[in-house]
């Protein structure tokens, strides 16, 4: 059932895309079939494949469950949450601060998950200092050497 829902969501998006192709601007000089032709062909093939797959699923006796819940499995759940927060904090906090926050939180969490301890104080200090150093080095490589403008955020550098 889960897969059917998943496929229906995709077909709804594809259907909406098909509807949008009607509003594409057309050049009078264009004799190649127009901008809408190719997306329409692909959408029709896509919808046909989805329909076939749904028929296949309905006829099949195989009751294999659609996997989506394991995204919330221990480890993955925390990773997803921290990644989403990281992406959201990039602009307001800036690259350096958000990256440091992301790395410190997730590496220490993974360390705890793998070893059931955070390690000795010396270990914790070294690990976290290295992560801060890595972030700063990465920032300078990308911004100074490669000329990429990474979000400055509150540090404004």
């Amino acid at each position: 059932m889960g897969e059917i829902v998943f496929l229906l969501i995709f077909s709804a998006i594809a259907g909406y895309m098909y509807f949008l192709t009607g509003s594409f601007r057309i050049s009078k000089m264009d004799i190649s079939g127009g901008a809408a032709m190719f997306p329409r062909i692909v959408i029709i093939i896509f919808l046909a494949c989805i329909a076939l797959r749904i028929v296949q699923l309905l006829k099949s006796k195989d009751t294999k469950e659609f996997v989506w819940k394991n995204i919330f499995k221990k480890g993955r759940r925390e990773f997803v949450i921290s990644l989403v927060l990281y992406a959201l904090l990039l602009v307001p906090f800036g690259f350096i601060i958000s990256t440091i926050l992301f790395l410190l939180s997730i590496v220490n969490y993974f360390y705890f998950l793998g070893n059931e301890t955070l390690g000795s104080v010396r270990n914790i200090v070294i690990r976290n200092l290295l992560l801060v150093g890595f972030t700063v080095a990465l920032y300078f490589i990308f911004s100074e050497v490669l000329g990429v403008s990474l979000p400055p955020g509150i540090l404004d550098i």
């Binding site: 995709f10 895309m17 057309i26 050049s27 264009d30 190649s32 692909v42 896509f46 989805i50």
Partner: peptide, 25 residues
């Protein structure tokens, strides 16, 4: 084939090729 169609559909986003007038999706 379903995933290939998704990939092809993603290429249709943006200014259309050849005519260059339509902004698609």
């Amino acid at each position: 084939l379903i995933t290939a169609c998704i990939g092809v559909l993603l290429t249709t986003v943006g200014i259309s090729p050849i005519d260059g007038v339509a902004e698609r999706f």
